[in-house]
């Protein structure tokens, strides 16, 4: 779930931009020239995938795929996220322009965690690809959800309920995101292992 414009105070927004810039700086380090199209095409693919909606009665949700993004792109996800979120905010009005830094940081940290968890689970070879992907995605949603809730919580007593509501709303997303990411990882394992870390061998 994204944070929208108008809620957070100025200093938090500025801190968000600073941290997102620092993360992006780390994400761009060592980027080869021929990697540019790869990052761009995958960012576009994830942007489009996030437009798919999934039915959760009584409503439908859009997935973020930041877990899968972390798994596939690794550190480059820190570039893909601010770009994808920026385009989403400007083209579709999802999220916000002023909250771009905060959102990019939130999802960036979660994507990195997912990437690390996926590698760690996959390194042993005993965990099935589905569960590697599912757990990585679940961790990503959990972390970004907790960060979001914590930020709302910090705004004052009046926002405690909002924070709880936000955390609760993440639960169905967590389940679907885990199943979908797990299935996608399983599919990619079979069809094109080179796309995933540690799969080229």
């Amino acid at each position: 779930m994204h944070l929208s414009d108008g809620i957070l105070p100025g200093p938090v927004l500025v801190a968000g931009f600073v941290s997102a810039a620092a993360l992006a700086r780390w994400g761009v380090a060592g980027l080869r020239d021929d990697e540019t199209p790869r990052v761009a095409v995958f960012t576009g693919a994830f942007f489009c995938a996030s437009l798919l909606h999934f039915k959760v009665p009584p409503t439908s949700v859009h997935l973020l795929f930041h877990g899968l993004l972390g798994v596939v792109l690794g550190r480059r996800a820190l570039l893909a996220l601010p770009i994808g979120l920026g385009l989403q905010a400007t083209l579709l009005g999802h999220g916000g322009i002023t909250t771009l830094g905060v959102n990019a940081t939130m999802f960036g940290v979660a994507a990195l965690a997912a990437s690390g968890l996926y590698r760690w689970l996959g390194s042993g070879g005993s965990v099935r690809p589905f569960w590697c992907g599912a757990l990585a995605a679940a961790a990503a949603v959990l972390i970004s959800g907790l960060l979001l809730a914590a930020m709302l919580w910090s705004l004052g007593e009046g926002f405690v309920w909002v924070a709880r509501y936000a955390l609760l709303a993440h639960l169905p997303v967590l389940v679907i995101e885990a199943v979908v990411t797990g299935s996608a990882v399983e599919f990619l394992r079979r069809a094109q292992p080179a796309l995933l870390p540690g799969g080229a061998a």
């Binding site: 095409v41 995958f42 576009g44 693919a45 489009c48 995938a49 798919l52 999934f54 039915k55 959760v56 009665p57 795929f65 899968l68 596939v72 679907i176 199943v179 979908v180 990411t181 797990g182 299935s183 996608a184 599919f187 990619l188 069809a191 094109q192 080179a194 796309l195």
Partner: peptide
């Protein structure tokens, strides 16, 4: 809202990534 439908959509996401590659 079923696991089968989610798997099908996951497949779509996977194919999108493959084609992107």
């Amino acid at each position: 809202p079923s696991r089968a439908a989610w798997r099908a959509l996951a497949q779509v996401v996977g194919v999108t990534l493959l084609r992107s590659l």
